[in-house]
Design a binder for these strands. Structure first.
Length: 362
DNA sequence: CAGACGTGGGT
DNA sequence: TACCCAAGTCT
């Protein structure tokens, strides 16, 4: 069986018409690859166009601020990708004179670019013979060739890479790579694969042995943690302002903005918050919890966040003292109508969309 | 090398 | 509901 010929033949007939397949610009191919890491095409598509429009060339991206890049990335998740994208653009301008590097070794040096992405970019844009090994490829190869080694192990990855190296078309590695991925996305899917219509029916180890649903094998899974986020939505009606702060810790949503946050080990009641305020040294009489918006359960891969938003009304003068007493050192005021200029998480975005801050009087 | 890191869709 | 997973990388 000539796997390479068969799968590229299939690809020429079945491939989807995707925007980043219409270009040979390594910058745009890189952009699409970063956006598509761990992300479905339907989910990343809009972002590809947004970034392409805002930053048509790498130089423009390098000139932007990180805040601008994160704002545009808002809602896509895995925000490290956005920060690295920006960092890499600056690096290309400074180290490569604004010209996108044209070989595997140099591309691999860019922040946010690992073995998969470097292989994808250089094979597609420059015809370098490096095989891609992503989730699709691991699934397709492990099923057809019967790799039973766990794919989330070093050995498993190595076995897949060896087979891809064996079959890659040195004359057109980009097409071969995309063919395997496309086949994994459209036919050899994780659940309910199209085995009855599959051109590898006669060859596929998993199909012949009736273990399609057991391959690829995987080892580990991680436990999910519960976290309790208590946001303080502080409203100064006199100035139409609220307070925000930037998440600078090495944690989720790094460098995005949010309301001042009190994280706790358990649910925080209004009474408990009131108590914390009293204990802060701030005169608790001057602040009243107007309302509490709770029941926001925000689900991340390995974290369940139970969030509630306490709405507090304070005069500008009192809110200043309040923030100081409560220990929010880096928080700052912002006009309510300007909040949408800040990059925020889906959770904060959802709250904002469902609650009008300046109509909090009811 | 195990654990982090988002979001949304499917079963 | 809970769990899986999607064109991975970094620490």
């Amino acid at each position: 069986m000539n796997f390479g010929e068969k799968i590229t033949g299939w690809y020429h007939i079945h491939k989807r018409d995707l925007p980043w397949r219409k270009t040979s610009d390594p910058y745009l191919i890189w952009l699409s690859e970063i956006i598509l890491q761990q992300t479905r095409i339907e989910q990343g598509m809009d972002y590809y166009f947004k970034f392409k429009n805002a930053f048509p060339v790498v130089h423009k991206l390098a000139m932007a601020s990180e805040d601008q890049v994160l704002k545009l990335w808002q809602g896509l998740g895995y925000y490290t990708r956005a920060r690295n994208l920006h960092k890499a653009a600056k690096q290309i301008v400074e180290l490569h004179n604004g010209v996108f590097p044209n070989n595997y070794k140099d591309v691999l040096q860019l922040p946010g670019v690992g073995p998969y992405t470097a292989a994808a970019i250089t094979s597609i844009a420059f015809g370098e013979p490096y095989p891609v090994v992503d989730g699709n490829v691991m699934r397709v190869i492990s099923r057809i060739f019967g790799i039973e080694t766990a794919i989330d192990s070093t050995d498993g990855n190595k076995e897949i890479t060896t087979l891809m190296n064996k079959w890659i078309d040195k004359n057109d590695p980009g097409t071969f790579n995309q063919a395997v991925m496309e086949f994994g996305a459209l036919y050899c899917k994780p659940a309910n694969p199209e085995c009855s219509a599959c051109l590898f029916k006669e060859d596929c180890y998993a199909y012949k042995n009736k273990i399609v649903n057991e391959l690829p094998r995987k080892n580990g899974k991680v436990k999910t943690k519960k976290r309790y986020f208590n946001y303080l939505v502080i409203i100064s009606k006199e100035t139409n302002e609220t307070w925000l702060q930037k998440r600078t810790e090495k944690d989720i949503w790094q460098n995005l903005y949010e309301f001042p946050l009190l994280e706790s080990h358990n649910t925080m009641s209004e009474e408990l918050l009131q108590k914390k305020i009293d204990q802060s040294g701030f005169n608790g009489q001057q602040v009243k919890i107007q309302k509490t918006v709770h029941d926001y359960k925000h689900i991340l891969t390995h974290q369940h966040i139970y969030a509630r938003f306490f709405v507090l009304w304070l005069t500008p003068h009192h809110s200043d003292a309040f923030m100081k007493a409560m220990g929010f050192k880096s928080a700052f005021t912002v006009k309510i109508q300007n909040i949408d200029q800040y990059g925020i998480s889906r959770l904060t975005d959802r709250y904002l969309k469902e609650n009008k801050l300046n109509e909090a009087s009811t």
